[in-house]
């Protein structure tokens, strides 16, 4: 089980959901669009800084582990399907569909960078999952889609009690003599069927009751007031910097990249677009400074 969102007293947690979404989008854009491993590393450092700013380094640890595992997978798969590059490390056999299975240095490096990229993406989602209040995200969603966000809220609300009920049901039936353990896969699946039917029926009954209560509280067609959250200066700062990062990433990807993997690796330090990591590093440092000050000085906090 992965950790679920908990309220914390940091600037990231206090952001307007729209600013938070922009921040996540800018991180994703940077991570997905930048080619040069060095620039990618800067984006990674920025992500790490945000994780520390949000004080969720403990909570994202499982995501880090998962990301590392996936990165490892990509690192292994890539050289096996990608045979371009000049520096062949191992000569492989020739197969009918896939061609010759050579392992090249370039493919290995490309795999490693792709893996790193994937890890950063997973980490970015981990940050979003542990530092962005899903409830506030739902609020933003409810401005355009009232009914689906209500269904979503209901599902979130019903889920924990349903899991509890399912566990309790399993216990009760175990005492009653139901054998849920042991046996083959098919027997275990068959033992599950009545549970599913009971859970299904139970939640339909519950849905009917909730619908009744919703009707009693005036749910239906007509004018509905929706919640509006204040957009504060800090949200503006974060949105502005996020948009800046995103723009830099997009602009840098237009035209020829300053880094190539094939046929031979170029030197990441010889990049011509040094303004890309510079702008990113600048904006991330401003974010960190703003965030630390927010935490330390109440006056600053009240001001922005």
């Amino acid at each position: 089980m992965l950790p679920v969102y908990r309220d914390k007293d940091t600037i990231i947690h206090a952001l307007h959901p729209l600013a938070a979404i922009l921040l996540l989008a800018s991180l994703l854009a940077a991570v997905l669009l930048l080619e040069n491993p060095l620039y990618l590393a800067v984006a990674g450092a920025g992500l790490a800084a945000l994780v520390f700013l949000a004080e969720v380094s403990r909570e994202v640890r499982p995501f880090l582990r998962l990301g590392l595992f996936l990165a490892f997978l990509v690192l292994i798969v890539n050289p096996l399907v990608n045979h371009r590059g000049d520096h062949v490390l191992v000569y492989g056999p020739r197969l009918p569909v896939l061609g010759r299975l050579d392992v090249t240095l370039e493919a290995l490096v490309y795999g490693a960078v792709s893996g790193f990229r994937l890890m950063l993406v997973v980490l970015a989602f981990g940050l979003a999952g542990t530092a962005l209040n899903p409830d506030h995200l739902l609020e933003v969603l409810s401005r355009i889609s009232f009914r689906s966000s209500l269904s979503a809220a209901l599902a979130v609300r019903l889920y924990p009690s349903l899991v509890l009920e399912a566990r309790e049901m399993r216990d009760v039936q175990a005492v009653r003599g139901e054998r849920l353990h042991g046996g083959g896969r098919w027997e275990r699946a068959r033992a599950q069927f009545p549970f599913w039917l009971a859970l299904f029926q139970g939640s339909l009954d519950r849905a009917a009751n909730i619908a009744e209560s919703m009707t009693a509280r005036g749910f239906g067609n007509g004018k509905v007031t929706r919640i509006r959250r204040a957009f504060r200066p800090r949200d503006a700062i974060f949105s502005f910097l996020a948009l800046g990062t995103m723009a830099v990433a997009v602009i840098s990807s237009i035209g020829k990249s300053d880094y190539r993997y094939f046929p031979a690796l170029s030197n990441p330090l010889r990049g011509t677009m040094i303004w890309v990591p510079a702008v990113m590093a600048g904006s991330f440092s401003i974010l960190v400074i703003v965030g630390r000050c927010w935490k330390r000085w109440p006056w600053w906090r009240s001001r922005i």
Partner: peptide, 11 residues
């Protein structure tokens, strides 16, 4: 109604 579980709709 009787059961709070059957009435709560939000989070």
């Amino acid at each position: 109604f009787q059961d709070p579980e059957d009435q709560l709709v939000s989070t």
